[in-house]
Design a protein around this nucleic acid. Structure first.
Lengths: 344, 344
DNA sequence: CTGAAAGCGCTTACAG
DNA sequence: CTGAAAGCGCTTACAG
């Protein structure tokens, strides 16, 4: 129970009877480069193992300026969508020898700024960020400061900041086209209030597809507030269902879809008998629903893995000037919630 | 776009025209202690602000041996239960000036060992760990090595390792007593295969309460495997419902409860008409269920906050020898899934 | 092939 | 009140 002193490089060196330089070289696999004698290499490694030596990364990092730490800023780690991303980021980062530090911004600009400062002062080698509304200038300044940085899930078009996200336009284009093919015309969209590009792209995908199909007069986009979503969602759906008599509704995020499901249930509106329903991303909740739910599937594995790959490239090869854009393609999963209209 | 050099302590010192010592003292709030002149303090702080100086924590840590980093090892950050804990840990850690590094062990001993090594070599000041089955010796050795360590969610009784977890015995005692009061007798339990104490305690709470009520002959504990839970759950529920004719079933984790809900739905077994149902922890899925679900509520906020508090105490006051045991009390949330038996 | 020494950016006795 | 210097534990030119 005595405070065991940690084994230092010097301890190993003393034990073998050589300099710390030699031990450091051997343990960093540069023996050949320095043409160290084979027996020496063996002896050093053996001793280090026996003494259970592990380098103090802090010291190593102070020297080399690298921590092998990646900072991940999401809006809320307890949101299943982001914790799923976090897990994939973690796995890929581990494979590449990195460890992940995470933080939640709660979609707040000041928080984001503070978190980035904290993470940078902890010495993270780079950042993966889900940017919040209004953070474009902040992110740009970090990027211009030559900090390796990759956006995930959302991006800033027109900047040279790298990102990995869904092809959002395509997601709603696919969805809308599917609904039209199934015979629906009065199709509504439910998103949330934000200036962020991922949502705007999803809205455009819907609007332009409706327009191209000559259904402009049915275009209606409802935006709820992210805060008291439940109340607003009830109101929005009440209008859409009872006043506008929409035939199908598309939700732009997973949380919106789940909330929508609850509200429709409360309103005793049946899916798909009374209204066709399309969600965004899979959710466990869908399992319990009488009919399977049609939804957009994001290739999360790909999106998150790409983000790490791009970031580590930047860190290692100093490819800070190069902008990597990774748009992953969505998949539409057909369920019973969007049957051919005549089938109802 | 030029690589801006980071502002160093020395830069500030040069700018003011004093030594780094002085700047360091002022910026660390020790001006009074060293009786530094007020104008000097003001000038230093002003200059540091203007130059946008932020200390290199790596260097500071190398010197002081502290990183203000906490390592959190859960079984899977993408499991909503653990991501909820992670979020609370994050919040409390931030309040206390710490940042969280997280890792997922996948309930695997070797992973746990590797992750602990990595986190320690990153220089985390302490660890919060959800220990996996068979990790007792590993954890003990870390603890004996005087690394600040707190277990969360699960604990090792009979050791002097601090922990913050639910009063697990009480959870199933409450539940079982409630069911008995509602008039049920043939009550079954579904857990999973593990030697970990939290599940064993929950089983004991059930068994001893059944026994005390003279219902020993009805005691039946089913254990599914965590891997292909779905298939095993179907089989288990088939036996319980169709063969054993149980009147009520209690699930020992949230994932088990949700899976149970799906399986019962597939089997077209109605809740509560055909069987009474008790879940563990709230889940969004419950919202969609025709009747509200009776479930055990863990005070997650308290459990996670306590874990951080205990850990930071250990880190700051070196209270490594003191064992802190925090058992938080469960709450039974009554729902429509466990009505009085005669009401059915 | 191997070692003495400088240096990464801080903090903190120690000296004045 | 203030500064010169040592030291945290490494790595890496530099010298031999």
């Amino acid at each position: 129970m005595a405070k065991e002193k940690r084994v230092l490089l010097k301890d190993v060196a003393d034990s073998v009877g050589v300099s710390t330089t030699l031990v450091s070289i051997v343990l960093n696999g540069k023996a050949k480069q320095y043409r160290i004698a084979d027996e020496m290499v063996e002896k050093v490694i053996k001793t280090a193992m026996e003494m259970n030596y592990s380098p103090n990364l802090i010291a190593r990092n102070l020297r080399g300026g690298k921590t092998q730490l990646i900072g991940l800023i999401v809006t809320d780690i307890s949101n299943p969508f982001y914790s799923a991303i976090a897990r994939i980021v973690e796995n890929r980062a581990n494979e590449l020898g990195y460890t992940v530090v995470f933080s939640s911004s709660d979609e707040d600009l000041d928080n984001t700024k503070r978190l980035i400062d904290v993470l940078l002062s902890k010495g993270v080698d780079g950042l993966i960020v889900v940017p919040c509304d209004g953070s474009e200038n902040l992110i740009k300044s970090i990027h211009d400061n030559n900090t390796p940085l990759v956006l995930i899930d959302r991006n800033f078009p027109g900047t040279d900041i790298s990102f990995s996200c869904l092809n959002n336009y395509r997601a709603t284009e696919l969805t809308t086209r599917h609904l039209i093919e199934q015979g629906y015309e009065n199709i509504a969209l439910v998103g949330y209030k934000t200036g962020m590009n991922h949502i705007l792209d999803r809205i455009r995908g819907y609007e332009e597809t409706m327009q191209a199909a000559g259904l402009s007069k049915y275009i209606q986009v409802k935006k709820v507030n992210l805060l008291n979503t439940k109340v607003e969602m009830s109101n929005v759906l009440d209008v859409l269902v009872n006043k506008k008599k929409v035939e199908a509704v598309v939700f732009l995020t997973n949380m919106l879809a789940v909330t929508g499901l609850y509200c429709l249930k409360d309103m005793q509106v049946r899916i798909p008998e009374d209204i066709a329903f399309v969600g965004f991303n899979r959710n466990d909740v869908f399992n319990l629903f009488p009919s399977t739910i049609t939804h957009i599937r994001q290739p999360l594995e790909l999106i998150a893995t790409q983000a790490v790959n791009i970031l580590v490239d930047k860190i290692n090869h100093g490819e800070l000037e190069i902008k990597s854009m990774s748009f992953s393609e969505p998949q539409l999963i057909f369920g019973a919630s969007t049957p051919k209209k005549k089938d109802i």
